[in-house]
Design a protein around this nucleic acid. Sequence first.
DNA 1: TTGCTCCTCACGTCACGTGAGGTGGC
DNA 2: TTGCTCCTCACGTCACGTGAGGTGGC
Lengths: 260, 260
Amino acid sequence: MAMAEAMAEKVWRIGDLARQTGLTVRALHHYDEIGLLVPTGRTASGHRLYSETDVRKLYHIMALRQLGLALGDIGSVLAGNGSEPRALLRRQLAALERQGSLIDDLRNRLTVILDALDKACEPSAKTLVTTLEVMTRMEKFYTPEQLAQLSERRRKLGDEAIADAEQQWAELIAGLDAEHKRGTDPSKPRVQELARRWKELIEAFTGGDEGIRRSLQTMYEQEGPEQASRGTVSSELADYARRAHEAGGANRRSQPPAAP
Amino acid sequence: MAMAEAMAEKVWRIGDLARQTGLTVRALHHYDEIGLLVPTGRTASGHRLYSETDVRKLYHIMALRQLGLALGDIGSVLAGNGSEPRALLRRQLAALERQGSLIDDLRNRLTVILDALDKACEPSAKTLVTTLEVMTRMEKFYTPEQLAQLSERRRKLGDEAIADAEQQWAELIAGLDAEHKRGTDPSKPRVQELARRWKELIEAFTGGDEGIRRSLQTMYEQEGPEQASRGTVSSELADYARRAHEAGGANRRSQPPAAP
DNA sequence: TTGCTCCTCACGTCACGTGAGGTGGC
DNA sequence: TTGCTCCTCACGTCACGTGAGGTGGC
């Protein structure tokens, strides 16, 4: 009797095994299909019968799944081919590192965007898209250090000061546009005064940093004033501003406006 | 002529657009298939013709893809239904946080395992699986704080001290097994001396922490000595050890051995 | 006979990659 | 006529979820 009990191979039906392991029946079907865990037996009517060996193997499979390994890799490891498992694990780790930093990047971007949308007066899809365009352009023309510098200064200034600066830009551009349309000579004192304020605002944006000034200039040269200023400065107006700066004595190439 | 040029709608063929954006032709086909970006026109022979509006939209799509949004979500955002985009972005961010911590978990696990395999004498698949089993059991019975405590103490002890402790366990278990097989009465001084060393080693493992001692005990009670000690201690031997401890005067339930 | 468990297809997921086989414009 | 670009199927990816329709043992 003790002998008979010891000999009687315990078997599990698929539902039992699913309940015991927390896997789904479908998952076990899948493991069978791909040959990862083929039950040792079947009943006459085709029901799967898992032996103790099968069950142990299933626990091994689950343990390896805890490492995020693909089922195919798990199969190789358990089959013992593919030699040493450390190489596989190291590849897996490297892949995870890549995924991790990708996710970190996305998270950063999302946080910045959500922040910007919270501050925007109208958090619409349009605002979202234009904000993203600005970000993309910034990432293209500024180095990561410069971006960090810029965001640090914005943080220090605070939302009010930034809104104020944007307001000043708007007024300045409107004023300059009026003079331009009136055909005022760029060397006239009224225009020169506007040019001086322009330079001040640029200076405030760059924080006096020569690298940031150059990146800004590159952006305007490569994308043109229309694109770079997101439509706030036409190329004619940018040209008018440039002539005003040159008339003002600076013969180094003048600055277009910073994006607020 | 200037008028004609202004009127001439510029169009892009699919290959041009692919080169310009860095996407593949197949991706653009896909966007067309799912209705995300359907080109405004076709040539007589069926070639896709993208208008400037299409191109602008494509850049918007790419910008939103930079946030890791699904193409379906991008479609909703650009269509302007689904109201405010912030809710979507927040959901996206939450999903990324979850993925991120999942990846962090996997990375931690992998690092621990790789470490253990580096130290193991034979980094085979079998070693990998048993190490994983130990880890899983540990995670089941110890709290995260206790696990941190244990790994901290192991780190402080260093590899040599740990190997030494394992050696001592092996000798102790062999000695006790010999007495058990010889039928020595557990109250005999020789066995009592072994029981004392047993208690010392447990003490060294738990570091005197009562919580860890209880977790260890729970593990042995729930899984039995065979499982919990990974085959190093049979239930008969554990019972013999228990009787020795009781004979030694402790009438609180005795400790089975710690997994080295 | 009625639940319950089990079975085998087979489609869908997500964003395309990768051929296969064929046509159109220089 | 020869490249080159474009076209439309259509299968494959990864680990299953989710029915559909049917059978077997208490």
